[in-house]
Computed example of a mutant assay.
Amino acid sequence: MTYLRYAALGDSFTEGVGDVDPALPNGVRGWADRVATALHTAQSDTRYVNLAIRGRKLVPIVEEQVDAAIALGPDLVTIHAGGNDLLRPSVDITALAAVYDDAIGRLTATGATVVLFTPHDPGAAAGFRALRGRFAILAEAMREIADRHDAVLVDYWRLRDYDDVRLWSFDRLHMSAAGHQRMAMAVLDALGVDHDLQTLELAPLPELSTAEQARQALTWVTGFAGPWLGRRLRGVSSGDTLAPKYPDWSVPPQ
């Protein structure tokens, strides 16, 4: 398949948080940019929109991005949402899946190829392990939705590479540059698109003493977990002041 109009929808996962690039809009690159660039390399007429905004929950993503994307007439859509819902104190996963199902149905009805994702398995991350059951239930719902609508599924849960901490950024919530590169490869492979992307070289895992591990954990709490919790308590999102990276058809970043 050749895709000429690729629309990326979602939250921080799709915006590219964790893959820092100050030269790009919102200061990040991300797997969707990398996919778009690979598609453009194969076909120079390819254009790209990325409507994703960090911090968005599922309903705002659907309300703000799905109809906007349909109006643009893409032939390829990727959508990832629900992660921010799962991190809230309580969540109705059945209701979440119903909203997702309706959105995927509307997107596939346009004739576009639609790619969706399961959540990842947080079992290897101590800070998020307690939420593993929620992630697993939504993962199975996403597999059912993909089957129902004949969508392309990237089963993030089963990509065991992500048990490696080096595929995650400092905040342990977003992928690193290496993680985004790996996801771009997974998406292109799921689509059956030839590409020349390779896994990024990883630095050796550091051998940390117990004291160093404790200091690292404290740095994470003060540098990420504390500010993140503070925003939740204030009803503030990290994406409140941001606009989509590429709201109109654009040449993918090179």
Score class of each variant (00 low, 15 high):
F224G: 08
L167Y: 12
A130N: 12
A126F: 06
H120E: 00
H180F: 13
D150L: 08
P119E: 01
A177R: 12
W220Q: 05
Y162L: 01
W220D: 00
W168T: 02
P227Y: 06
L200H: 13
V154M: 01
L173D: 04
V115Y: 07
T210D: 07
A184E: 08
T222S: 13
W220R: 02
P122Y: 10
D194S: 13
V115H: 00
M183P: 06
D155S: 08
T118G: 07
E212G: 06
L200Q: 09
R134P: 00
R134H: 02
A136T: 04
L218I: 12
A141F: 11
V154W: 03
D194K: 13
T210G: 06
M185R: 04
F170G: 05
V114T: 00
D164S: 08
Q216I: 09
L208G: 10
L205E: 05
F128G: 05
G133C: 12
R134L: 07
A211H: 03
V115D: 00
P206I: 12
A136H: 05
V221K: 03
F224S: 11
V187W: 04
G123P: 01
G223W: 10
A214V: 11
E212R: 03
D155P: 02
H195E: 11
M185Q: 11
L218S: 14
A151T: 10
A136V: 01
L138T: 03
L205Y: 12
D171K: 11
G223F: 10
A217I: 07
A130M: 15
A190V: 04
L153C: 11
T118Y: 01
W168M: 10
G127A: 11
E207P: 05
D194F: 09
S169V: 15
E144S: 13
H149Y: 11
S176Y: 03
A126H: 03
G179Q: 04
S209A: 05
V114K: 03
D194Q: 14
T199V: 07
A211P: 01
G133I: 06
D194N: 09
I137L: 15
T199M: 14
D171M: 07
E201N: 08
R148F: 10
D164Y: 09
A203P: 01
R182C: 01
R129F: 08
V152I: 15
R215F: 11
W228P: 11
R143S: 08
L159K: 03
D155H: 02
A124I: 06
A211V: 07
G179N: 04
R158W: 08
G123E: 00
L202E: 03
G192Q: 05
W220M: 09
P206W: 08
H195N: 11
A203E: 15
T113Q: 00
D155T: 06
A177G: 01
L159N: 07
D164C: 09
V187E: 01
V152D: 08
G123S: 12
H180E: 14
R158S: 14
Y162S: 02
D121K: 06
T210E: 01
P206C: 08
P227V: 00
Y162D: 01
W157V: 04
V114E: 09
H120F: 10
R166G: 02
D121P: 00
V152A: 12
G226V: 12
H180Y: 09
E212K: 02
V114N: 05
E201M: 12
F170A: 12
R215Y: 15
G111K: 07
L202G: 06
